[in-house]
Amino acid sequence: MPQTVRGVVALSKGEPVVTTNIVIPDPGPGEAVVDISACGVCHTDLHYREGGINDEFPFLLGHEAAGVVESVGEGVTDVAPGDFVVLNWRAVCGSCRACLRGRPWYCFNTHNAKQKMTLEDGTELSPALGIGAFADKTLVAAGQCTKVDPTASPAAVGLLGCGVMAGLGAAINTGNVQRGDSVAVIGCGGVGSAAIAGARLANAAKIIAIDLDDRKLEWAKGMGATHTINPSTDGDVVEAIQALTDGNGADVVIDAVGRPETWKQAFYGRDLAGTVVLVGVPTPDMQLELPLIDVFGRGGSLKSSWYGDCLPSRDFPMLVDLYQQGRLDLDAFVTETIGIDDVEAAFDKMHAGDVLRSVVTL
């Protein structure tokens, strides 16, 4: 039978979120109901509340989550009731041209649950990134559930569901950081800090953290940064990167901000034939002007990283294992744990830069 549970909903653009009753249907074919243990508060959820993603209100927010599968629908074989899972928004189809070419991390037809969760009056909800996990339970496509070590902390490993995976993957998957490389990361919030952690995991020799906020630079050093640059006191970013890399620039520069000025800093702050990775999300109105001869003359790679080019079934269990071994400190990303009624206050803290992640625990 359908269940009524609590959920955090954005009813209209720009208005404070509310905790209200929502209705979860029984899982249909290919679907699963997951009992949520923890869910991180991500900037994407604030974008949904502000109408920055689309206008399909009301939204059931939350997507960086871990929990336990409660029930599954017909045809589900990869997960079963009782499995501890991290939720993801890349449930690959297996049949699009990317999947058939052996590149499922570029899947063009990812799955979400076909049924809709609703308010008690029957109003259909739009789940954030097809998940909607600021709730006691949620309905997802079974492919959005990735089974991991059940002894891991839900508050920590749930963050792999979005921002932390985006940053780790930007370094490891998209940037292909190698042992001994020099890496610069522009913007040291949650995603940038994760990129720094990824560069350390890949055994980069020099990891340069760049941010205007000294608090974030301190966090970055805890994640593995060997050097820091604050442009407000250390001057021009490109010159500062070059000064730390024997005048050459970094092998890989990751832009975790996503603005034309930071992308240009990344472009000119890399070594010849170096790699630029854009993982910060620009707004639709942003434009970039760049001399084409500079693109030609510098060589190398200019890449965008979408969800860290991850494949959840491959990457989540591996990263959780590294966390369990003490080689990847996911706990460091959890600034605070909060209740389900505290999401609006968490948005304020995130906007002010006071936290890496607030995590709702249920």
Rank of each mutant, 00 (worst) to 15 (best):
V8A: 02
A10D: 03
L11Q: 06
K13A: 14
V17Q: 01
V18C: 07
I22V: 15
P25C: 01
P27L: 13
D35I: 02
S37T: 02
A38L: 04
H43P: 05
H43L: 06
T44V: 00
D55G: 13
G75D: 14
V85H: 14
V86E: 12
L87S: 13
N88R: 01
A98I: 03
C99Y: 12
R101H: 11
C107N: 00
K114D: 10
T118Q: 12
D121F: 01
G132E: 11
T138D: 04
Q144G: 14
D149N: 15
T151L: 07
C162F: 01
C162L: 11
A170T: 06
N173K: 14
G180I: 03
D181V: 08
A194L: 04
R200F: 08
D211N: 08
L212G: 07
D213L: 05
K221N: 07
M223Y: 15
A225Y: 14
H227C: 06
I229T: 03
T233K: 04
G235Y: 11
G235H: 12
G249L: 12
D255S: 03
A266V: 10
F267W: 12
R270T: 09
D271H: 11
V276R: 08
V276G: 07
V277Q: 09
V279D: 03
V279M: 04
P284H: 12
E289K: 13
L292I: 15
G300T: 13
S301W: 08
S301K: 14
S304A: 15
S305I: 05
D309H: 15
D309Q: 15
L311M: 07
M318H: 14
D321C: 03
Y323E: 03
L328W: 05
L330I: 02
F333C: 03
D341G: 06
E344W: 03
D348M: 08
V355Y: 00
V359H: 02
V360G: 05
T361C: 12
